[in-house]
Design a protein around this nucleic acid. Structure first.
Lengths: 209, 209
DNA sequence: ATTATTTAACTAAACGGTTATTTAAACTGA
DNA sequence: TCAGTTTAAATAACCGTTTAGTTAAATAAT
């Protein structure tokens, strides 16, 4: 009993959400226009209102889709690792991978933090909290076992996320500035390994006893 | 010699710029309304157009005022220090201090990076480049002297700035979430020293040979 | 099975509030 | 009075949202 209409409308909703994610990431909430989202989705503006609702609801859907599942990914990745060091590596790499898979994550996160998380749905905040709880566990365990120094978990988290998110978004911007002084271009080498590995190495070295 | 009118209009311009800085930081470019800026400045909207120009120009002025002079501060602070370690500490602390002095810096930076620096005036990009050049010098010198490992300067810069900016803006957000799980609140301790010192310690440890 | 009816999905056009910008008049000190 | 400055009011474009109508798939009736 396949309902052709249902299938089509599902695709429509998906196209709207994809377009919305892109436009919100590029322009931010107020900079994003429903007209542009509709155009990119190849859909009439009113269809967005019919299928999803107003701009707020649309944004909440995007946020949930973008930030929601990352938490479970992290939890899963960390659980597979054993030692605190391995767990922390998994934690960092998982964040880096999610950012890779999801180029809209950095700009959306940055703008959300910039605005003080004013529009964050509670569900998302709970997700973030669960991620932080995982990190606290790793750091505490590592300290008890004498492999980590004492740290402020929240600062470490900001270091991990801040570094990855900023680098991911700022590196292309820098590379685009072709007129930069030669000194800068000369040092414009690629990372030896992946961003996650590189950040993990730095953070681990920073907090190892 | 003293032209009362000139003085008054100077103060008007200053009040406009201060108000604009606040509103742009809170709401971003498209979220900021000229009406609100005028209201906060205690000035008629048309005065903004008479004294400064359109919204774009106003924003450019704010960006210049906020990001422009930080570069010189950093250059000055670094020059006063001797060893690569001390220079790097000065570099990091200076950024942290500027962020402290200037609460509008984090949100504006984040949104600017999020949008791919689309609206950054060239002057500002040159300032950022000069700061990066300074960091490259420090790291290279330190590596030559055998006190630093080899690093990717741009990544280190993103680590420093990302950590400071994210922490500065996200910490208050987290503290406002009173309903967070007890585990998180328990670890909600203040930093032992200043944010700059703390980040400097971590980064130095991360890149020391 | 064919026709008629209902319903889901979508669209074009318009509405109404918002907001950046302009204009012209009023004010203020020299 | 006159130039520099500020203001209230008007303008025009923009943009989120609604409405009224269309298409076509699904269902019911014949």
């Amino acid at each position: 009993m396949k309902d052709i209409r249902k299938e089509k409308s599902d695709k429509t909703v998906e196209r709207i959400l994809v377009a919305a994610r892109m436009v919100f990431a590029e322009k931010g909430y107020s900079g994003a226009h429903v007209d542009e989202i509709a155009e990119r989705a190849g859909v009439n503006k009113a269809t967005i209102y019919y299928q999803i609702g107003d701009k707020d609801t649309l944004y909440a859907n995007v946020i949930h889709q973008v930030l929601g599942n990352t938490a479970q990914n992290i939890a899963g990745a960390v659980a597979k690792a054993d030692s605190p060091e391995e767990k922390l590596k998994a934690y960092i790499n998982c964040i880096a991978e999610n950012v890779d898979k999801n180029p809209e994550l950095p700009p959306i996160m940055m703008r959300e933090v910039a605005s003080g998380g004013a529009t964050l749905p509670r569900v998302v905040i709970e997700d973030i909290a669960s991620v932080l709880t995982i990190l606290i566990g790793i750091l505490e365990d590592g300290r008890k076992k004498g492999v980590f120094i004492e740290t402020v978990p929240f600062l470490i988290h900001m270091m991990i996320v801040g570094t990855i998110v900023f680098y991911k978004k700022a590196a292309p911007v820098k590379d685009r500035q072709l007129w930069l002084p030669a000194t800068l271009k000369a040092h414009d080498k690629k990372l030896k390994s992946s961003l996650g590995e590189e950040v993990a190495a730095l953070v681990l070295k920073a907090i190892k006893r």
